[in-house]
Design a protein around this nucleic acid. Sequence first.
DNA 1: GCTTATACCATACAAATGTATGGTTGTCAA
DNA 2: TTGACAACCATACATTTGTATGGTATAAGC
Lengths: 201, 201
Amino acid sequence: MEQLTEKQKAIIDFIRNIQTNQGTPPTMREIMKEFGFKSIGTVQDYLRILEEKGYLRRRGKFKARFLDIVGLTTNPVLNVPVLGQVRAGAPILAVENIDGYINLDKSLLDNGADFALRVKGDSMTGAGIYEGDFVLVRINSRTENGEIVVARIGEEVTVKKIYCDTKYRHLRLEAANPAYKPISDPDIQIVGKVVGVFRKY
Amino acid sequence: MEQLTEKQKAIIDFIRNIQTNQGTPPTMREIMKEFGFKSIGTVQDYLRILEEKGYLRRRGKFKARFLDIVGLTTNPVLNVPVLGQVRAGAPILAVENIDGYINLDKSLLDNGADFALRVKGDSMTGAGIYEGDFVLVRINSRTENGEIVVARIGEEVTVKKIYCDTKYRHLRLEAANPAYKPISDPDIQIVGKVVGVFRKY
DNA sequence: GCTTATACCATACAAATGTATGGTTGTCAA
DNA sequence: TTGACAACCATACATTTGTATGGTATAAGC
């Protein structure tokens, strides 16, 4: 694709932003206002150039808001619930456990996620998961030895590495922090596999 | 929510369909055509009813293609470019450096992000940032000592902790991995501050 | 010097699109 | 039978929005 100047790039970024945020592209006059142009002709020039360079397409003549950004992945967005405190007895995804929702680009995850969980404690710092991080969890995904999972023991929900002691036929949870001991409780219930982590600074 | 008749439901389904498929809602006359109405007034009636019943909203008067389907409204989404290889000389956000785009829920970040970068190497594992992680970066944000930043030295772009040696009046980059030595290059250029991390398993 | 490209401005006009107003017909409940 | 409501039609008009045309200034390249 041909080079764009700074200004040209700013224009196409603006169009892309409006498109994704309000679900419809801007009009030429809206672009004009945004960039402080005093003439609509200026915008016409930019759009013509962007079209010639292959970054834009127009669908039909005289159509309002019919700019198409070439290559704009209208990425499917995943809407996952964020779990708060989990109450005893209640199923993990019960409405009363849900704290809110976040959106995530599907392309960030291979197979989607069923919920998110805010991490408490420092038991997984050795694996790069810190207190306050969001972990994204896929329920009922097949897990391998050593993978990071969300498990439930009674009303406690934790993030740990899972191991299966085939000899004794029970599950073992291990922290990624030497300060914590492995857990081998017969009541361990694997909720799902951690498929992503998000941290905010 | 109030009940809809068959026809009313068909209308809103059509609007939803057009919105998701072509990225912009239909005009009233397009709706008219689709359903074979002979008068624009018919569509006006339907839209009024759907608005009264709470299934539709209009943004502004006399605006083209500004129907909003209630409930389809996704949270504000940030569309950030993902940087690939950075070429020498080129400004960091030059089009040729951009590998693609990802969408992120705005609520995940306090002040937005300007671009994302795929992490290379293991120099920040001590801070929970691993090879392959995406870091989200805000350009020109004020940085404090010890914060994680993206810096540029020539055509190399790295993620490190930043420190200002006031005594010697120069910047120092430190890895979060004892295997790496601090960098004190006069050409260090701070690109932005790391405001988020995302990792996929 | 000439051409080309970028980056603007100004204005008139055409087409699309939303709005306002006032109808008709049929059904169903009070 | 009256009234409310859904489901239409018709037309004039206001406003937005895209198009067309013709400018100016500056810098780069031949």
